[in-house]
């Protein structure tokens, strides 16, 4: 029982990180119908930015860990947002239109570009940090079977829930969110009604990247090590989460993320760690084949 609860906690934490990345995928797909292949690598860039800023904050500015993390969070969100804004302007906006393949290839190229850029600029080796925020709250069990939820895990889950609530509120209640939903439904009509479609789309990309940056900071804090190749697999898993939860739905993305995190953790704990990535890809394939609109998504009927 203790193992189960511990894995539950671990899975929910991992799932929260996936959920944060998944929101970015779902928002961009919702608004321009494009799978942003490079989003996983944007997450990776965010984690590197967080790493370097954190080192600056703690080593040069001498800030305590918690304060440093907050500062890093805010700055990383801003800077990663800038990265994604630039990527959208340069590589996607000119290709917006009736072509489906061109933005896709461009996104794949961008993904390759980003991971190799970081590899060249920062070196291919793992970048480890000393562990942060040690300590945990004991839940049950004794000694070897002690089940605890660490402070880090609490922070991650709380941050995810808070951000989900904030962004969900933005999408549902603010004029910006209304504009996003309008562009999602009918971009041409939205433009005719005076909505600045380009700006709305740009803001969506920035929002997605900001959340990916938060995920990056969380990832850095939780695992303590980043690597340039950490973009692809978490990216696919997060995309799986977005699809599973229903593409276009924010709560769905987080729900999907939690599910994927739980499945991955449980699988590794109870079966074998070998095929855990296969599990994620298989869930993706199965969901797309049998339940393409996901759990919380709306099925679309094609007009004949």
């Amino acid at each position: 029982m203790e193992v189960f609860v511990q894995q539950l906690v671990n899975g929910l934490t991992l799932g929260s990180i996936y959920g944060l990345i998944a929101i970015g995928y779902t928002m961009v797909f919702g608004i321009i119908g494009m799978v942003n292949f490079a989003h996983g690598d944007v997450f990776m860039v965010g984690s590197f930015i967080a790493l370097i800023l954190f080192m600056v904050a703690t080593m040069f500015l001498g800030l305590p860990t918690v304060a440093a993390l907050i500062v890093v969070l805010v700055l990383a969100m801003a800077l990663t947002g800038l990265w994604n804004w630039t990527i959208e302007r340069v590589a996607y906006r000119p290709l917006r239109g009736s072509f489906r393949l061109a933005p896709l290839i461009s996104a794949i190229g961008m993904s390759i570009l980003l991971s190799n850029l970081i590899q060249i600029l920062q070196g291919p080796r793992n970048k480890p940090l000393p562990p942060m925020l040690p300590g945990s709250i004991h839940i049950m069990g004794e000694d070897a079977l002690a089940t605890a939820i660490s402070y880090k895990q609490i922070v991650i889950m709380v941050v995810t829930v808070v951000l989900l609530a904030v962004f969900w509120w933005v999408v549902q209640k603010t004029p910006l969110g209304r504009a996003q939903r309008a562009v999602e439904q009918d971009a041409k009509m939205a433009a005719l009604l005076g909505i600045n479609v380009d700006k709305t789309i740009s803001i969506t990309f920035v929002m997605g990247a900001a959340l990916a940056a938060v995920a990056g900071v969380m990832y850095l804090m939780y695992y303590g090590v980043v690597n340039f190749s950490d973009g692809f697999v978490p990216g696919v898993k997060a995309f799986t989460a977005a699809v599973l939860g229903g593409i276009g739905s924010l709560p769905g993305a987080v729900l999907g993320g939690l599910l994927i995190g739980l499945i991955e953790t449980m699988w590794s704990a109870y079966f074998t760690i070998d095929y855990k990535d296969v599990a994620a890809f298989s869930i993706l394939a199965i969901t797309l084949i049998f339940l393409p609109s996901g759990i919380l998504g709306r099925p679309d009927v094609e007009k004949v």
Partner: peptide
Amino acid sequence: PVLRLRGDYLAIVTLAFGEIIRLVLIN
């Protein structure tokens, strides 16, 4: 199983299959 999916979804599923085959070959 996958050819009735449209556009992007077909792309993702085929990507998933490609990766599954590679991971199975590794493991």
